[in-house]
Amino acid sequence: MRYRVWHKTSYRYGSPVPLSHNQIRVHPRVMDCQRVISSEVTVDPSPVARRMWADPFGNLAEFFSIEQSHELMSVTATSIVERSLPFTRSPQIAWRDLVSAVKNPQRTIDRFAAQFQFDSKYAYRTPGVMEFASQSLLRNNDLLAAVKDLMGRIFSEFRYRAASTTIETTLQELLDSRSGVCQDFAQLMIAGLRCFGIPARYVSGYILTHPAPGQVKMVGSDASHAWVSVYAGDGHWVDFDPTNNIIVGDEHITLAWGRDYADVSPIQGILIGGGAPKLTVNVDVSQIKNNSKELE
C-alpha cells in the first residue's frame, strides 16, 4: 500500500520569539515493511541550522534553529511511503520464557531488546497498572495471546475521548477515569507489559482512516497516532494498536519508536519569549492507488 502523508504543525505565539531551538521526528522510519519513497520537511520561517541525525533508537531526527524574530512557526512534513504487511512468523513463545531470556540475556539481540523493559518517564510500573495487566497475563501462557488479551481489555474497558487527557495525566488517573487517547492507551499497555518484564516500546506514526459510509473524508482531519511494539524474542517485534484493537498491518505508517512519548514526540522546542503559544496540528493520510500517476 502506498500512502501520502501530510503533517502540519503550527504554533502561533503570543509574543515575538527571537530565538528557538527545535527537535522534530516527523520523517517516516525505514523498515523492512516500510519503504520511504520521499520525505520532505519545510519549516517556516526558514531556519538557520538544520541537522539530521539518527537518534539512539535509530529514528531519523532533525534539529533546527530559527534565529529571526517570529510569531508564527510551522513545520510541514510531506512523505510518500510504501507499507507492506509486516513479516509475520506468528512467534509461538510463552511469555515467561521470553521474560527469562531477557532477564538474563545470553544473546546480544536480547540484550538490546531488554532496554525496553525498564521504566521510562511516561510508561512506568505502578501497583495499579500491575493489577490491571495481571488479569491478562496470568490467564494466558502464550505471549501473543496474553498481549492480545491485554489490548482487547484496554479497547473495551477504556473510552476514547479526544482531549480528555494531557501529557501530565498519570497512569493511575487514566485507570481511574477509564478514558483517554491513543498515547495513553499505548503507554498504559507498555507499562502493563513492563510490569512483567516484557520489553515493549512506544511507536508514533499515522493510521489510514476510513470515512463513515457515504461521507467524504476531510483533508487534515486525521491525527498522529501511537501504538505499541512488543518484543517476541529472536529480534522480532510485533505491533499492537490498543486504540483500534488490531495487530498492526499495512494501514499504519511508522514514524519513530522509543521508550515512550518523550523519546519520539513529533516536535519539541525551547524558545525565548513567545507568550502563550497556540498549537494547531493537521494530518492527512491518503492512499495512493496503484494506478496513480504519482511520481516516485
Binding site: P18, S265, I267, Q268, G269
Partner: peptide, 11 residues
C-alpha cells in the same frame, strides 16, 4: 534573559 519556555508539552 527573557522567559524561556518549552514546546512539545501538548500532544
Amino acid at each position: 534573559t527573557a522567559d524561556v519556555q518549552r514546546l512539545g508539552q501538548s500532544r
